[in-house]
Simulated assay, not measured.
Amino acid sequence: MPHPPLTPMARLRWDLVRRLLPAERSRVLEVGCGQGAVGVRLAERHVYTGVELDEASVGVARERMSQAGLSGRLIHGPVEDLADDEQFDLLCAFEVLEHIEDDTGALKSWLSRVQPGGKVLFSVPAWQSRFGPMDEAVGHFRRYSPDELTTVLHDAGVTDVRTQLYGMPLGYALEAVRNQIARRKAGIREDTVEDRTAKSGRLFQPSDLVGPVVMVGTWPFQQIQRAFPRTGTGLVAWGRVPA
Rank of each mutant, 00 (worst) to 15 (best):
G232L: 05
R162M: 08
A126W: 03
N179T: 06
V96S: 05
G167F: 00
V28K: 02
F141L: 11
L21P: 00
K108T: 14
Y144K: 01
P2T: 08
Q223E: 12
R143K: 11
G139E: 04
G201N: 04
R130K: 13
L6I: 02
R143W: 06
E30D: 10
D195F: 02
A43V: 07
T49D: 07
A156R: 08
T159F: 11
A173V: 13
D195G: 11
K199T: 15
A173H: 12
P146C: 08
E148Y: 12
V124R: 01
P22G: 10
L107W: 07
L16C: 10
I224F: 04
D208T: 13
F94D: 00
M1Y: 15
F131K: 11
A227Q: 15
T231L: 15
V138C: 09
F204Y: 11
E190W: 13
A61V: 02
P125V: 05
D81A: 13
S123F: 04
P206K: 10
V120D: 00
R73P: 04
P4H: 07
V241Q: 06
R189I: 09
R64E: 03
G34W: 00
E95S: 12
P229Q: 06
V152D: 03
V216N: 06
S71L: 14
A93P: 01
R196K: 09
P169A: 08
Q35G: 08
V17D: 01
L170V: 03
G69Q: 05
D191L: 13
D84I: 10
A182Y: 07
Q128D: 11
S66Y: 11
A186F: 15
E136H: 11
E190R: 14
V214K: 00
G234V: 00
G239D: 03
E98I: 05
D208E: 15
A156T: 10
F204A: 06
L53S: 07
L42F: 06
W238G: 00
W110K: 02
S200A: 12
E52P: 02
L74C: 04
G34D: 00
T163M: 07
L29N: 04
A227S: 15
E44F: 14
D103F: 01
F88D: 04
R13F: 02
D81F: 12
G118K: 01
T151I: 14
L170K: 00
L21K: 02
G171V: 01
L107N: 04
N179D: 14
Q164E: 12
Q128H: 08
G77A: 02
A198E: 05
L170M: 07
R196M: 03
P2D: 10
T231G: 10
E86K: 09
T233A: 05
V213R: 05
L20S: 09
L21C: 06
S57Y: 01
Y48C: 07
R162D: 09
T151D: 14
F88M: 12
E148K: 12
P125L: 07
E148M: 13
Q225V: 02
A173W: 14
E44V: 15
M168A: 05
Y172N: 09
E190L: 13
V158I: 06
F228V: 04
A156Q: 11
P133H: 15
H46M: 10
F204S: 05
F131R: 09
